[in-house]
C-alpha cells in the first residue's frame, strides 16, 4: 500500500491523523473515526489535571475561510479518562494521548498516567492559544518547551513523545530544535493560529464568549506549511504536519514540506467524519497521476531550491 507510513516507530496504515480537539471526547467516537472515517491514527482531546468546564458558548464557529474556536480546554480531569484509555488500548487503534497542564511537573504527572495505557504516542499540547496559563505559554520559548519535554521523557517509558507547537512562537524552528535536544521523538505543528476574533456588527459584540479564539481551517494553511517547512530544515525528527488540510492535494503539499504524517481537524466540519478516507484516496490519485511511487519519494522535495 502506497500510504503505509512509519511515524516515530509507529506503523500506520495511512498518514492521516485526527487532530486533537476534534471529535475525540470518548473512545467510541475515536474508534469510529479510525474504522469508519479511515484515519491512520486518532488523537484524544487534550486531557488536563482536573475537572474543567471550559467557556460558555459560542465556542466553535465557522466563518468564511475557516473555523475559530475558544472551547477553553474543558477536561474531565485525567483520572476520569481511565475507562476511555483502557477501551482504546483494547481496540488496538493507534492513539495519540494529548496532554495539557499548568506546570512542567503536571505535564509529567499526566503523561505518566497516560503512558500506563500504552498509547501509540503522547502529544504535549503547548500551543492552545485561548486558555489562560495552559498550553501556549509552554511553547513560546525554547527553554520552557525543552524542560516540558525533558520532564515528560523521564516518565514516558518507550512511548514516543511529541510536542505540539504554536505558530505564535517567534521562531518555531528553534522551539522544535530545543524539543529535539530535550529528547522529543516527533514534532506536531501547528496548533490553531491567533488568537483572532469575530464581531457581530448588528449585536455590536464579539461572537465567541471568550472574545478571542484560535483560527483553523483553509485560512491558516500557508502559515502551517511555512512552519512545517522551517521545522523540517531545523530538526531530524519526523513531523506531524497540520493546519488547513482539507484534501489530498493539501496533504501532499505538507509531505513535500517535510511532514511524515498529516493532521486533519477542521475539514471534518467541511467533509464529515469520512474525510480521512477521502484525503487518502485523493493522495493515491495524485501519486498515480504524478508518478510518485511512495510518500518517501516526495517527502521534503520542496526544499533545496
Amino acid at each position: 500500500m502506497p500510504l503505509e507510513t512509519v511515524f516515530a516507530g509507529i506503523k500506520l496504515r495511512n498518514p492521516t491523523v485526527l487532530a486533537s480537539g476534534i471529535l475525540g471526547t470518548n473512545a467510541e467516537i475515536l474508534i469510529r473515526t479510525a474504522k469508519e472515517g479511515g484515519a491512520g491514527a486518532v488523537t484524544m482531546k487534550s486531557i488536563g489535571p482536573c475537572e474543567k468546564d471550559g467557556y460558555a458558548n459560542p465556542t466553535i464557529l465557522e466563518w468564511e475561510h475557516g473555523l475559530i474556536n475558544a472551547v477553553g480546554l474543558p477536561s474531565p480531569g485525567y483520572k476520569n479518562t481511565e475507562e476511555e484509555l483502557k477501551q482504546l488500548e483494547k481496540s488496538g487503534i493507534p492513539l495519540i494521548a494529548s496532554v495539557y497542564a499548568h506546570s512542567i511537573e503536571e505535564y509529567a504527572e499526566i503523561a505518566g498516567f497516560a503512558e500506563k495505557f500504552k498509547p501509540a504516542m503522547i502529544e504535549l499540547n503547548m500551543s492552545c492559544p485561548h486558555s489562560k496559563g495552559e498550553g501556549m505559554p509552554f511553547g513560546l520559548d525554547e527553554e520552557t518547551a525543552g524542560q516540558v519535554v525533558k520532564a515528560v521523557k523521564k516518565v514516558s517509558g518507550k512511548t514516543p513523545v511529541m510536542p505540539k507547537l504554536t505558530p505564535q512562537a517567534l521562531n518555531i524552528a528553534s522551539i522544535a530544535s530545543a524539543c529535539e535536544r530535550a529528547g522529543a521523538d516527533a514534532i506536531c505543528a501547528i496548533n490553531t493560529l491567533g488568537p483572532g476574533m469575530l464581531i457581530n456588527p448588528e449585536v455590536r459584540k464579539p461572537v465567541l464568549a471568550n472574545k478571542f479564539g484560535g483560527i483553523s481551517g483553509p485560512a491558516i494553511k500557508p502559515v502551517a506549511l511555512r512552519c512545517v517547512y522551517q521545522i523540517y530544515e531545523a530538526v531530524k525528527l519526523p513531523i506531524l504536519g497540520m493546519g488547513g488540510i482539507s484534501n489530498g492535494r493539501d496533504a501532499i503539499e505538507f509531505i513535500q514540506a517535510g511532514a511524515t504524517t498529516v493532521g486533519v481537524g477542521s475539514a471534518v466540519y467541511y467533509r464529515g467524519i469520512g474525510v480521512f478516507k477521502e484525503v487518502c484516496d485523493e493522495m493515491v490519485q495524485w501519486m498515480k497521476k504524478n508518478n510518485a511511487k511512495s510518500l518517501e519519494e516526495i517527502r521534503g522535495v520542496a526544499h533545496g531550491h
Binding site: 480537539g21 470518548n26 465556542t59 466553535i60 471534518v268 466540519y269
Partner: peptide, 17 residues
C-alpha cells in the same frame, strides 16, 4: 452541545454525535 456542526464531540452518545 457546543458546535452543533459535528466536530467538537461534546454531544457524543456512544459513537454518535
Amino acid at each position: 452541545m457546543r458546535c452543533a456542526t459535528g466536530i467538537c464531540g461534546s454531544c457524543v452518545l456512544g459513537k454518535w454525535l
